[in-house]
């Protein structure tokens, strides 16, 4: 069953169009990766779902289980944000409010929807513990600066999933973390998504991240989708020259060490 259906989405800033007619769908409970180099429009496409950027004008269709979001009223959008679609930001350092405790921020999505403080607190602590934060009940009243980067990103994930959204948009959730912590956070995100039957749209420029995480992969370039395929097929038999180039640019241990990686210029030359 399709949860998120994007049809012919165009996004422009003033006169400049940056996303040129994107089609994309995410099935309920599925994990889809949206891959592309920076400036490819992947982030803009994903954020169009929640319409956070007032400067962006959208055309086409974004529907969530049949509810049209392009041109939706502010009140409709508010009821989607946080409760049906969660968003994990790239940088856990700047996406947390520095003057509020992390507990306050984790409880907030529940509290603004009328859940009692006591219940919200219990659920928050349980979730934080599930996300691997040790001593969750004690650390619940700490401030963001008292946490390390990896722990902070767990807090950000807790905030995004506590209201049990059907879809989680993760915008480069591990880019700001070091490699070891990246793997932990991704595994955790994967586990939580499976446990809760939550669909994930993962935005990343890192193909290495995609392989173990996603069911489907969508490759974007210059504001257009160049290839959509199940993850195994994409890695085994990429169709579009750009995708082939991208895969060639990933360093691998099983390749002849003497062979050079494909450069961006070479990809550009092949893909046109």
């Amino acid at each position: 069953m399709t949860l998120l259906e994007i049809r012919d989405l165009k996004v422009s800033y003033g006169e400049r169009e940056v996303v040129h007619g994107v089609n994309l769908s995410v099935g309920a409970g599925c994990r889809t990766a949206l891959v592309g180099e920076s400036g490819s429009g992947k982030s803009v496409t994903a954020r169009a779902v929640l319409q956070l950027d007032v400067a962006a004008s959208l055309s086409g269709s974004v529907s969530l289980k049949g509810q049209e979001l392009v041109g939706a009223k502010a009140s409709e959008l508010r009821s989607v944000r946080g409760s049906r679609v969660g968003l994990v930001f790239q940088d856990p350092l700047t996406s947390l409010n520095p003057v509020m405790t992390i507990g306050w921020q984790i409880m907030q999505p529940l509290v603004i929807r009328g859940v009692k403080k006591k219940e919200a607190r219990e659920r928050g602590i349980a979730l934080l513990a599930r996300l691997g934060v040790k001593d969750a009940s004690r650390r619940f009243d700490d401030y963001p600066h008292q946490f390390s980067g990896g722990m902070r990103q767990r807090v950000v994930i807790a905030i995004a999933v506590i209201a049990e959204p059907e879809l989680l948009i993760a915008d480069e959730p591990t880019t700001a973390l070091d490699v070891r912590v990246q793997a932990q956070v991704l595994d955790l995100l994967h586990e939580v998504a499976v446990e809760r039957g939550m669909a994930v749209l993962l935005i990343t420029h890192d193909l290495g991240v995609v392989a173990g995480f996603a069911d489907d992969v969508v490759v974007m370039r210059h504001g257009r989708i160049v290839e959509t395929a199940p993850v195994a097929q994409l890695f085994a038999d990429p169709q579009h020259p750009y995708t082939k180039g991208l895969l060639g640019a990933v360093p691998r241990l099983d390749r002849d060490p003497a062979q050079r990686l494909v450069s961006v210029e070479e990809i550009e030359a092949v893909a046109g």
């Binding site: 929640l50 956070l52 508010r78 009821s79 989607v80 944000r81 946080g82 409760s83 969660g86 968003l87 930001f89 940088d91 700047t94 996406s95 947390l96 409010n97 520095p98 509020m100 907030q108 999505p109 603004i112 929807r113 950000v156 905030i159 995004a160 209201a163």
Partner: peptide, 22 residues
């Protein structure tokens, strides 16, 4: 302009709460 304000909007926080608490 801060990201935590954008993130609060993404959570469905209302305007008044956004201004008073964030």
């Amino acid at each position: 302009q801060s990201e935590f304000v954008e993130s609060a909007v993404a959570l469905g926080v209302g305007r008044r709460r956004l201004i008073l608490r964030h």
